[in-house]
C-alpha cells in the first residue's frame, strides 16, 4: 500500500473543471514531481488533497493517506490530518507568514495544534525546528517578525511550520519559484534532506525541469487539469512520450550518451493553457499540438504500462519499456557524473 493514493481527484468551480479525474500515488520516502504550465491545476491539486480548496470550489474523488480514507472525513477529523500527517509549503514565502505574529509564535502554533505540549515546550520545539531548517541562530530569531527575514529564510520558516508535526507527506507548491536562483538550490537541497531524514513522501510542484531532474523519483505531467504523462524521472528525460512533455523540454531532448541531461527551464510553447470551462473537446492539447490531426477529436484515454502512463492518440504503450532506458539515466550516475 502506498503512502498516498489518489483516485479520480476532481476539483470544479461551477461548471469549470480545474482538476479532472487525477489519479496517482506516492510512496513513503519518494519524491513525485508535478509539472505543467501555470494554470494547469497543480496548486488546486495540492489544496484538494487536504480539502483546502476555498468555496465555491468542490472536490471529488478519493484520497487515501497512510491507509486512512480522507474522503468524507468530517471536517474536525480532517483538521487533525492537516499539518499533522500532511504539511504544505506554498509558493510565495513573502505572504505565507502572518506579518503581525513572531516567527516563533507561528511555528509553535503549528506544533501545539497537534501535540499536548505547553507554551514553553512548544517554543523549545520551534527553536529546534528552525535549527532543523538551518536558520542560523534559531533561538535568538524566535521573537523576530517575518519582515526581518529574507525570502529564502521565510521559506525555511514556512518549511519548519510544514514539518512541525512530523508529517508523513510534505507537499511543496512551487517552493522556489519566488526566490533568487542561488537560494532556489538551497531550498531544494533542504527539502530533499528533510525528506530523507524524516522519511516523508514529497510532492514537489514545479515549473523547473532542472529541479525535476535533480530531485524527483517520478514525474506527473499535467495539462488543463488532466494527467497527460507519468514516468520515472530517468524514463521521462530519456524518452518523453507525450507531445506536451516533449514541447516542455524542447522539441528534441539534446541528450548525449554518458552525459547528464542538460538543466533547462520549461520551454515556452506558443498558445495558452485553455481556461477551465473552455477546455476543447477531444484532446485538450490539440490546438497547440504539432502532431494533432482528425483522430485527436476524442479525449485520448490514459494508457498505462508498468508505472508509466500517457494520454495521447499518437503514442502507443508499450512502445517503450523501462528495460530499454539507457543505463546512464540511472539518477545515481548523474550525481556521480556531476
Amino acid at each position: 500500500m502506498s503512502l498516498l493514493e489518489v483516485e479520480d481527484l476532481t476539483v470544479r468551480f461551477g461548471d469549470a473543471v480545474v482538476v479532472d479525474r487525477l489519479s496517482f500515488s506516492v510512496e513513503a520516502g519518494e519524491t513525485l514531481a508535478i509539472v505543467g504550465e501555470s494554470g494547469c491545476g497543480k496548486s488546486m491539486t495540492a489544496l484538494a488533497l487536504t480539502r483546502l480548496v476555498a468555496p465555491p470550489g468542490r472536490i471529488g474523488g478519493r484520497v487515501r493517506l497512510d491507509g486512512l480514507d480522507l474522503t468524507g472525513l468530517p471536517e474536525a477529523r480532517m483538521r487533525a490530518v492537516r499539518g499533522d500527517r500532511v504539511g504544505i509549503v506554498f509558493q510565495d514565502p513573502m505572504s505565507a507568514l502572518n506579518p503581525v505574529l513572531t516567527v516563533g509564535e507561528q511555528v509553535a502554533e503549528a506544533v501545539r495544534a497537534h501535540s499536548p505540549l505547553g507554551a514553553r515546550a512548544a517554543r523549545a520545539r520551534a527553536a529546534e525546528l528552525l535549527d532543523l531548517v538551518h536558520i542560523p541562530d534559531a533561538h535568538r530569531r524566535l521573537d523576530d517578525h517575518p519582515h526581518r527575514f529574507s525570502g529564502g529564510m521565510r521559506q525555511r520558516v514556512a518549511i519548519a511550520i510544514a514539518i512541525a508535526a512530523n508529517p508523513s507527506l510534505l507537499i511543496a507548491d512551487e517552493p522556489t519559484t519566488a526566490l533568487d536562483v542561488t537560494i532556489q538550490a538551497q531550498i531544494l537541497c533542504l527539502l530533499d534532506e528533510l525528506r530523507r531524514d524524516l522519511g516523508m513522501g514529497l510532492i514537489l510542484i514545479t515549473h523547473d525541469l532542472g529541479v525535476v531532474a535533480e530531485t524527483a523519483d517520478r514525474v506527473l505531467v499535467m495539462y488543463a487539469g488532466r494527467k497527460v504523462e507519468e514516468q520515472d524521472t530517468p524514463g521521462l528525460f530519456a524518452a518523453p512520450l507525450h507531445p506536451y512533455t516533449r514541447r516542455l523540454m524542447g522539441a528534441k531532448p539534446r541528450l548525449t550518451l554518458g552525459e547528464p541531461p542538460p538543466r533547462q527551464r520549461l520551454q515556452e510553447i506558443p498558445g495558452l493553457v485553455p481556461l477551465p470551462g473552455a477546455i476543447p473537446p477531444g484532446c485538450a492539447f490539440a490546438p497547440r499540438c504539432a502532431d494533432a490531426d482528425a483522430g485527436c477529436a476524442t479525449v485520448p484515454p490514459l494508457q498505462r504500462h508498468g508505472r508509466a502512463a500517457v494520454a495521447c492518440h499518437k503514442v502507443e504503450l508499450p512502445a517503450w519499456t523501462p528495460r530499454q532506458v539507457p543505463r546512464w539515466t540511472d539518477r545515481s550516475q548523474w550525481r556521480a557524473a556531476e
Binding site: 483538521r79 492537516r82 506554498f90 510565495d92 505565507a96 502572518n98 502554533e109 497537534h114 514556512a158 510544514a162
Partner: peptide, 14 residues
C-alpha cells in the same frame, strides 16, 4: 484572501 490564512488553515487550526 491572504496567503498566510491558508498557511494557518494548513496547520490544522480550528
Amino acid at each position: 484572501g491572504l496567503d498566510f490564512v491558508r498557511t494557518a488553515r494548513a496547520k490544522g487550526l480550528t
